[in-house]
Amino acid sequence: MPPIIEFAHAGVRREGRAALTDLNLQIGDGERWVLLGRSGAGKSTALKAINRMVETSAGEVRCQGRRVLDWDPIQLRRSLGYVIQEGGLFPHFSVARNIGLLPRLLGWPEDDTRKRVAELLEAMGLEPARYAARFPHQLSGGERQRVGVARALAARPRVLLLDEPFGALDPITREEMQTLLLRLQAETGITLVLVTHDLQEALRLGTRLALLHGGRLAASGTPAEVAASQHPEARAYFRLAHPQPACPLS
């Protein structure tokens, strides 16, 4: 099966310097990929190159077999779910309107949209009757992030991109969100590409890891393969993980 997303010698220059250099990755359908690295490693840049929030200056990125540069960026983004750290919920829209925005823009019948919103709230563990009419400022951080995920999933994308989605949450809420995400993925088979700097999160969520360092790929593959890598950055990361009694590999 061809990869659903593919980086081929992809490079990005931002503000005159290389943010990403010669990235090669093949992301298979239904896989859970984690882009791991310190801040400034280029992991967010790589994620944004997929939906053209940043443009590649070298090589290419393909999505569902097509160069992303050949896609209309609006259509491309609408076919990919996207979750950001603070949720980025529209503060002037209710929860239901936030989630239903993309289906409405895509011209779904109103009834379908409403059903989809209720179904997603349900799936996120938010009782529709209680939450649909609320506004973002009436939600806790974890609830906001659940709505953010629901909004990204609204139009049934085949790929969900997540940029440090749980970075701002307390450890317990973060753990709940991770569990929720894993369950959702198992149910739908959606492809996940998640950015984090946190090795524990990477090991918990990822079936594949890509470790980035200074805009370049340091190591990639299964968690075990990356753990075995001799690349100094991989060593640095896993030395950090070492004191932990066990790696909760899923």
Partner: peptide, 26 residues
Amino acid sequence: DPAVKEAAVALGLTARQRLWQVELPL
């Protein structure tokens, strides 16, 4: 909020939709 603007781009709103549905109301 930059996060709101980023979300609007990432969701696939056109420039005009971002202006009228997100930026101007806010």
